[in-house]
C-alpha cells in the first residue's frame, strides 16, 4: 500500500491540472483542448485494436461512422446526445462486426490494405450518396445537449462533459486490457500458434478487439460531431488516419499511456508550429520518420532508455513494429 502513495498523489495532481486547465486558456485553445480529449479516446481505442498485432487503417472511418450515426439520429429523430453517443458506438461496432468476416481472413499486409480499402469504400459512399449523407459538403446542425441551466455549447461545460465520458471510456479500456481478455489479446499478438494450441480462438479475439475498439472510436466520433456541429467525409480520410498512426507511434504503443502521451505532446507541438501552416504536414512527416528511425518505441520509452543509459548500458531492446 505504501508504494502506491506517489502514484495516487501524482494521479490527483494530474486530475487537478486537467480540471483546471481550460480556465487558463483562450477560447480557441479551449476548442483544441476538447478535440485533444476526444483524440485521446481515438488513440486509446486504436491501441486496443493494435494489441493483437494488426494495424488497421479503418479506424478514422469508424469514427466517421459514429459521427454520421449521431448526426443522422439527431437530425432525423431529434434524439439527444445521451442516446446518440451509445448508438454511435453500437453502429460502429456493428459495422466492424460485419467487416470482421472479410477482413480477418487476412493478416499483416493484406489486412492493412483490406482495411484501407473497406474504409475508403465507406467514405466514398458518404460522398456519393448525397441523401442521406450530404455528399462532400457533409451535414450540419448537430447541437450539444442543454441540461438544466448548463449550456453545453460553451466550451468549458462541454470540456467537462467530454472529460467525464472519455474518462469513463478510458477506465473501461484500461480494465479490458488488464483483464484476462487483454492478456489473451497480447498472447494472440506475440505467440499466436501457442495461444491457438491452448484453445484460444485467435480469430474471435482479433474480431473482439476490433469491434470493441470501433465502439469506442464511434463514441469519440459522436462526441466530436456534437461539439463541432458539422460533419463531412474529409474529416475521416486517410489524412486523419495517418495522424492517429503518428500519435500512436510517436507516443509508443507498448504501454497504455504511450498513445495518450503521443497525442498530447504532438498537439502541443502542433500549436507551437502554427505559424508555419503550409509546412505542417512536412514537419509531421519528418517527425514520423525521425521517431521511427531513432525512437522506435516512442516517447514512453525515454525514461527506460535514460535509466539503462545511466545504469551502465544494459542491452537496449531494439524496437520493432511487427514480428515476422
Amino acid at each position: 500500500m505504501k508504494e502506491n502513495w506517489p502514484k495516487i498523489v501524482g494521479f490527483l495532481l494530474l486530475l487537478a491540472a486537467v480540471l483546471a486547465v481550460p480556465h487558463f486558456l483562450q477560447f480557441h485553445h479551449q476548442d483544441l483542448l476538447i478535440f485533444l480529449v476526444i483524440n485521446v479516446l481515438v488513440v486509446t481505442s486504436y491501441r486496443l485494436v493494435t494489441l493483437t498485432g494488426e494495424w488497421s487503417l479503418i479506424h478514422a472511418v469508424m469514427m466517421g461512422v459514429g459521427g454520421y450515426t449521431a448526426t443522422l439520429l439527431f437530425r432525423g429523430f431529434e434524439l439527444g446526445m445521451w442516446f446518440t453517443l451509445p448508438l454511435a458506438g453500437l453502429v460502429a461496432a456493428a459495422i466492424a462486426a460485419l467487416l470482421c468476416f472479410p477482413l480477418f481472413r487476412m493478416t499483416q499486409f493484406y489486412f492493412l490494405i483490406g482495411s484501407f480499402a473497406a474504409g475508403e469504400a465507406i467514405r466514398l459512399c458518404w460522398i456519393e450518396f448525397i441523401i442521406p449523407f450530404g455528399g462532400t459538403g457533409g451535414l450540419s446542425g448537430v447541437e450539444p445537449p442543454f441540461v438544466f441551466d448548463i449550456d453545453f455549447l460553451e466550451p468549458i461545460p462541454y470540456y467537462y462533459l467530454t472529460l467525464a465520458i472519455v474518462g469513463l471510456c478510458l477506465l473501461i479500456l484500461y480494465r479490458i486490457e488488464n483483464s484476462r481478455i487483454g492478456l489473451t489479446l497480447h498472447s494472440v499478438h506475440w505467440k499466436a500458434p501457442l495461444a491457438e494450441s491452448v484453445g484460444v480462438d485467435t480469430w474471435r479475439y482479433r474480431a473482439l478487439a476490433f469491434i470493441v475498439g470501433s465502439f469506442f472510436v464511434g463514441v469519440a466520433g459522436g462526441l466530436k460531431v456534437h461539439y463541432l456541429g458539422t460533419i463531412n467525409p474529409n474529416q475521416f480520410g486517410i489524412g486523419f488516419m495517418v495522424f492517429i498512426l503518428i500519435w500512436v507511434i510517436v507516443g509508443g504503443y507498448n504501454r497504455f499511456y504511450g498513445p495518450i502521451l503521443g497525442v498530447v505532446v504532438l498537439t502541443l507541438f502542433d500549436e507551437s508550429i502554427r505559424q508555419f501552416e503550409e509546412f505542417r504536414p512536412a514537419i509531421y512527416g519528418a517527425v514520423l520518420i525521425l521517431s521511427i528511425l531513432f525512437l522506435p518505441k516512442g516517447l514512453e520509452s525515454i525514461p527506460a532508455r535514460l535509466r539503462s543509459w545511466a545504469g551502465g548500458g544494459s542491452d537496449r531492446e531494439k524496437g520493432k513494429l511487427t514480428d515476422g
Binding site: L112, V242, G285
Partner: peptide
C-alpha cells in the same frame, strides 16, 4: 516492413508540401 511503410507515409507528406 511496417516501419518502412510508416516512413513512406512521412515521405508522402513531405513531397506533398
Amino acid at each position: 516492413p511496417l516501419a518502412g511503410l510508416i516512413c513512406s507515409i512521412g515521405v508522402l507528406f513531405i513531397l506533398q508540401v
